[in-house]
């Protein structure tokens, strides 16, 4: 190979590398910015992830002292991206009054795949209409064939005077552990 050819070869390689590098920079910058905005949800914390907060669900009188589950909506302030909605339903809970001043609360969302669990009065059990997970009145899995990986998610309850307050949180579905969503 003559020296001249070598020079052209080296120059050619330099040009190729430079063309690739500059082209890549020009293409990558807008792509990174687009990706950053697209991945914005990753940095947002859910209300549940912040530990949840106590929400007034109902008065004690509204829950019969019969140890059976009764469904209540959870009404709280909700932020949906740019909108703020004061006092809107954000979920559902089952309340069960087991004694005069004792109430149990379960999140109505199925820990399997997030369906809304029904209470079936004739069988006195909870049943998810999606994949037939069955739960006993205390929230534990009652049918071993249930696909749910854990029992219903119980929620802390406080009786404040004659009002029932529940620390409302959603939990990740599909896993054995109860981890805030």
């Amino acid at each position: 190979m003559s020296e001249n050819q070598n020079k052209t070869g080296r120059r050619g390689f330099f040009k190729e590398a430079l063309a690739l590098a500059i082209g890549a920079i020009a293409g990558v910058v807008p792509a990174i910015v687009a990706l950053a905005t697209f991945l914005d949800p990753l940095r947002r914390q859910s209300a549940s992830n912040n530990g949840g907060s106590f929400v007034r669900i109902s008065s004690l009188n509204a829950v019969p002292n019969d140890a059976l589950p009764h469904k209540f909506p959870v009404v709280a302030d909700r932020t949906d991206a740019w909108n703020k909605f004061p006092n809107v339903p954000i979920g559902g809970v089952y309340l069960r009054r087991t004694a005069e001043k004792t109430v149990e609360a379960f999140n109505a969302v199925c820990p399997h795949a997030g369906g809304f669990i029904d209470y079936v009065p004739s069988k006195k059990c909870f049943s998810c209409p999606l994949h037939n997970s069955q739960f006993a009145l205390d929230g534990t899995i009652s049918d071993p064939k249930s696909p749910s990986p854990r029992g219903m998610d119980s929620l802390p309850v406080e009786i404040r005077g004659d009002e029932i307050w529940v620390k409302f949180q959603n939990f990740r579905a599909g896993i054995r552990e109860k981890i805030a969503a």
Binding site: G12, L18, A19, I22, G23, A26
Partner: peptide, 11 residues
């Protein structure tokens, strides 16, 4: 690569 380089610089 010659024209590509010029195009890339312009972009």
């Amino acid at each position: 690569p010659d024209q590509v380089l010029k195009d890339a610089v312009a972009c």
